[in-house]
Nucleic acid binder design. Structure first.
Length: 505
RNA sequence: GGGCAAGUGGCGAAGAGGUUAACGCUGCGGACUGCAAAUCCGCCAUGCGCCGGUUCAAAUCCGGCCUUGCCCUCCA
């Protein structure tokens, strides 16, 4: 089974063969840190994090580089508004970035280089580009000359003429060609600036990625990723600079781009003001649900966001979570159990589980088709639920061994997508008054003692024990009253053959 | 204006020439349950934007049209 990926450069799905056998080197364009990230940013992060996780699942060692753009117009403007130092502002939002990314279970990159810490390398690259005649200097600015690089346009698939025809921007008259872009910008007053052969200034946006990718991954690394909107001009320019600079090709071997998050079918963007901040979403939605939502559509397709669709994702996801809980319950969380002789049904079950695992891998192998992979997870969950809940189910040591293994596999697949159920939210202090009130109201009928624990978790246990006793005595009225009362406050009770189970909505 | 995608059941979303068009949500019916919940089983697209064409065979390939989104400007 081999992995195939869609390469923007060739516009085809290709077999993925990394340059070195067991290692993948990948670079993903990270954020410009001048504010909190929104759901659109999160999609790119989650998509490439999932790609990375799957590559690791397949046994590759992944060297993952994600940069921070901490020198940029937007940062400078924002800093000016707030009256703070631009680099300090950028540093602050790098911290905020990690808070959100960690919450979303984005694994940290192997290296997170910052533009501000690679100025010397960028200056050197620009110097070489000037020397080789790919760039020219005007006043204190240095521009890359797109005409000097014949392959310009190969990633975005358009010719210079086409791009010129569509040009809608006012052009800097000093440029030789309207599409030439800045490698170095002369400093304006009060801007962060560094000394260079062309006077004080700062690097243009595109050069940082070329330089840092080559520095950490070497030329000709495996995967370069980012959002769709980076194809042009950012990645096109990265290629031009990097390949002109080294005189070699290709700069990166596979170019992967994710589609956009839209809101009411319109791109989620800061200028339209229709963006949703990850920090805020995380207050209401568990990270697993947000990731499930983002991965329920293929990464290259557009994804329309709404609160309703998040709610749907939550319903869908709870099926998977319920199966994890069922497996935990039935295996008692044991990790290692010796195998034994299996019944015919158990053998069949084991084989079906294997088939669904293969289904998951085939889906992911086909250009990371997470939507299809999730379908495989649902099939697997159904198989597990059916097996464990069948009428003649009997737990033997051999069956336990199988279920322990199945639980491990199931969790492993969920982990590829980063959607292993988190610690089920514990009962916080906010449940105290609610539980105490219920205990007071139903305490007499339930035969509760005078002294009740004050800790919500313990209090609930006491209530459930009393309810159990009531049910044994067929006092269903009070048992149901307690269940209804708890439900009203978001605590769901489920009576199973193995005892009562509770969860928070 | 130029370039690139996409249009699949009530909704979301896979499928890219050939078995009954996955999977999930919602709804309905059934099983299980003291009743629920969870779970399981079943039902809900004679049809995949529209019109032509290629083919023994088309959601899938080709052409035209319509609609929507993205890029051409900082943006994931």
């Amino acid at each position: 089974m081999s992995l195939r990926v869609y390469n923007t450069l060739t516009k085809k799905k290709e077999d993925f063969v990394p340059a070195s056998p067991r290692q993948v080197r990948m670079y993903v364009c990270g954020p410009t840190t001048y504010n909190y990230i929104h759901l659109g940013n999160a999609r790119a992060l989650v998509v490439f994090d999932t790609i990375r996780r799957y590559l690791e699942y397949k046994g590759y060692r992944v060297f993952y580089v994600q940069n921070f753009t901490d020198v940029d117009d937007k940062i400078i403007n924002r800093a000016a508004e707030e009256g703070v130092d631009p680099l300090e502002l950028a540093e602050r939002y790098i911290g905020e970035y990690f808070r959100d990314a960690d919450a979303l279970r984005i694994k940290r990159a192997t290296v997170h280089p910052k533009a501000s810490e690679h100025i010397a390398e960028m200056i050197e690259a620009i110097r070489v580009l000037l020397e080789k005649g790919f760039a020219y200097q005007v006043d204190g600015d240095v521009f890359f000359s797109v005409r000097s690089f014949p392959e310009y346009g190969k990633l975005s698939g358009r010719s210079l003429e086409e791009m010129l025809a569509g040009a809608r921007v006012e052009v800097d008259q000093r440029k030789k060609d309207p599409l030439d872009f800045a490698l170095w910008k002369a400093a304006k007053p009060d801007e962060p600036a560094w000394e260079s052969p062309w006077g004080k200034g700062r690097p243009g946006w595109h050069i940082e990625c070329s330089v840092m990718a080559i520095k950490y991954l070497g030329f000709g690394f495996d995967i370069h990723g980012g959002g769709n909107d980076l194809i042009f001009p950012h990645h096109e320019n990265e290629i031009a600079q990097a390949e002109a600079y080294t005189g070699k090709s290709p700069f990166a071997r596979y170019w992967l781009h994710n589609g956009f998050v839209t809101v009411n079918e319109e791109k989620m963007s800061k200028s339209l003001g229709n963006f949703f901040i990850v920090r805020e979403l995380l207050q209401e939605w568990p990270p697993e649900v947000i990731r499930f939502f983002l991965l329920s559509t293929h990464y290259r397709s557009p994804l329309d966001f709404s609160v309703d669709s998040l709610a749907t994702a939550r319903s869908s996801y709870s099926r998977l979570r319920n199966t994890v809980e069922l497996l935990e319950e039935v295996t008692g969380g044991q990790e290692v159990v010796p195998p034994g002789r299996l019944s015919r049904e158990a053998v069949e079950f084991r084989d079906q589980v294997s088939a669904h695992i293969a289904e998951f891998e085939e889906a992911m192998d086909d250009d990371f088709n997470t939507a299809l992979a999730i379908a495989a997870l649902f099939n697997l969950a159904r198989q597990i639920n059916s097996f464990v809940n069948r009428k003649d189910f009997s737990m033997t040591p051999a069956v336990l061994h199988v279920l322990v293994r199945v639980r491990q596999y199931f969790l492993q697949l969920l982990d590829v997508l980063g959607i292993v159920p988190g610690e089920s939210r514990s009962l916080g202090e906010e449940f105290c008054p609610v539980l105490e009130e219920i205990a007071k109201k139903l305490g007499g009928e339930l035969g509760l003692p005078e002294e009740l624990p004050s800790e919500p978790q313990k209090l609930l246990e006491v209530l459930l024990q009393a309810r159990d006793e009531a049910r044994r005595q067929k006092n269903y009225q009070v048992a149901d009253a307690l269940r209804d009362a708890l439900r009203e406050h978001g605590i769901i009770l489920e009576d199973t053959p193995r005892g009562v189970r509770w969860r928070i909505v």
